[in-house]
Design a protein around this nucleic acid. Structure first.
Lengths: 171, 171
DNA sequence: CGTATATCAGGTCCACTGACATTT
DNA sequence: CAAATGTCAGTGAACCTGATATAC
């Protein structure tokens, strides 16, 4: 996850690639490929920025997401499986993230009171504090107007359609 | 890179999170966070689909990108450093990708004719064939109308602005 | 000489698979 | 018993840092 470390180009590499797609007989697919490439590259940029903010806090984005998810629940706790479903990550990934966070005392594990198989992850006070600090820093970064609020709203709508069509939610 | 394996939720998890942001006093940052989250999640979905197509061809997205970049050049060859700059990846990542592709005889390395330090990566005929096949399959997947052409164009424009503002290219 | 170009070793992170014990 | 839950070990991918040899 870098992009940040690499120098910027004198031209838009995505548009340049699209020109090539057309020249090489992939004209009908060029728009789709450009959309895909744009998405990939934009995400890499954003991810790199977020990582940069999170690194000094000893957090990765995956762990930050879990922390925020927990901080949003009423009781501050969630079964592992439920957390995985919300974050759309593999059960083993939740186990891993929870273990790392637990080692840093940002969450703790508890047996599920009603289901003997289950385990609850619960955010600690330290976890809440760190999550709040991380969020504040991330907001500082994205307060810089890379995009106007209206543009962001358009982006959100388009991507929501894409996600729905791809089966991210609903039906 | 999953998302594909996880079941879909009965509600939009991104919108749900945004509701929480507002309830927990992050109202002013909610739009930005929602944009970031949407982007991350949409990219994960698209990446998962692409990976799925590429896996049977023994390609990763990073290697596919390198292959396509080379196939687009006039001579089919590029110095390692230049390829890294275009793809915005670390020099060591180019080395790695090139080595894997070379092992599969999809590219070969040649000394740079004018710069004794440099190395050229050159796509082979087999590399061109595989790249074309991979592209055809990817296009099949994205031919499914998750998004209309107009929507994709809007998305491209918004993300281009974001990338430009973030220093991906130009100035 | 200092800079640039690759490569390599070592480390982190994440995701997935398959096996497993436990409980429902 | 079959299904679900969470853990663990192992694998593969990608990225980064720092060190190195070579050439400009």
């Amino acid at each position: 996850m870098s992009v940040v470390s690499t120098p910027s180009l004198p031209f838009d590499p995505v548009a340049e690639a699209t020109r090539h797609w057309r020249e090489h007989g992939w004209g009908d697919a060029a728009v789709g490929m450009e959309a895909v490439t744009s998405l990939m590259r934009a995400q890499a940029i954003v991810q790199a920025r977020v990582d940069e903010v999170l690194r000094p806090l000893q957090l990765t984005f995956a762990r930050y997401e879990l922390l925020m998810l927990l901080s949003f629940t009423r009781s501050g706790a969630l079964p592992m499986a439920k957390a995985g479903a919300r974050l759309q990550v593999h059960p083993a990934s939740v186990t891993n993230a929870a273990s790392r966070l637990e080692a840093a005392e940002l969450v703790r594990r508890r047996p599920h009171p009603e289901d003997g198989r289950g385990v609850l992850v619960e955010i600690t006070d330290a976890g809440r504090e760190l999550a709040a600090k991380a969020t504040a820093r991330i907001n500082e970064v994205f307060a810089a107007p890379d995009l106007s609020n209206d543009r962001m709203r358009e982006l959100i709508v388009i991507l929501r359609d894409l996600r729905r069509a791809a089966g991210d939610f609903g039906d």
